[in-house]
Design a protein around this nucleic acid. Sequence first.
DNA 1: CTGTGTTCCTGTTCGC
DNA 2: TGCGAACAGGAACACA
Length: 290
Amino acid sequence: MPELPEVETVRRGLEPVFTGSRLELVELRRGDLRFPFPPGFAARLAGRRVAALKRRAKYLLGELDDGETLIMHLGMSGSFRIDADDGRGVRHRAASTKAAHDHVVFHFASGASVTYNDPRRFGFMLLVPGAELAAHPLFAGLGVEPLGPELTPQRLASGLRGRKAPLKAALLDQRIIAGLGNIYVCEALHRAHLSPLRAAGTLVDAKGRPKRGLVDLVEAIRRVLGEAIEAGGSSLRDHRQTDGSLGYFQHSFRVYDREDAPCPTPGCRGHVSRVIQSGRSTFFCRECQK
DNA sequence: CTGTGTTCCTGTTCGC
DNA sequence: TGCGAACAGGAACACA
């Protein structure tokens, strides 16, 4: 569920609490999430100050004052909750308080605390020296940031050239563009009027240059992600922002989870189809997505 | 190298 | 009403 817009929303929510703050204690309620926590994880964090909280693709990166980077991934059901201290020693728990599946609690010297909750435990946390970050297996092969200046039609053309995989699968491939997930791929393809079934390489001409549709696709990706971030992400099931409030981009879905609904493209008489591609639901309109 | 399928995990939803 | 099956999905991994 958390794709790039949700992770960015979380980052923005956590930034004021994390940045410049000193970690007093990190409480681990269990020894693992998706992977075991690295040796000495909590002890290595204690006493550290967080210099900055950044994001790369769907990863949150807490840069610490000792040069290490706290890598956090929300998997698909991870969320953070901020329990702030009002300065008078009174703790305010966010509205969505739920003790079950609270796996990690970051206690800051300021009195604020941040709790990581993850029912499905697909998320994980690691601690790696900043200098090793770029070479780390998780990051070494990662593709371009879809909202950064590197994502251009030409760049995407190089990534898709010659690929026979369906466009849907290619866009989910984090080695090409990093940060897109099932929802936003479906939404971007609909906005660009491109079929998820089409072979990815057909958007590139013989000289390796982007065809018209690819230019539209880059624009659609940027627009849909940007709008979703502005909306605070999408709230499916129980996904919430750090303050407990709900993102509302799900109301702007044109095709995702809308099987059989009339296609929202103006003038299009089609309906939303659902097919399975590489084991995942794809939603699209056969009439206006070619 | 490329493309596809499986797996991890648990809560929610759906059909009988 | 109850129960099991299907589903959700990021990314590592296995495999043809």
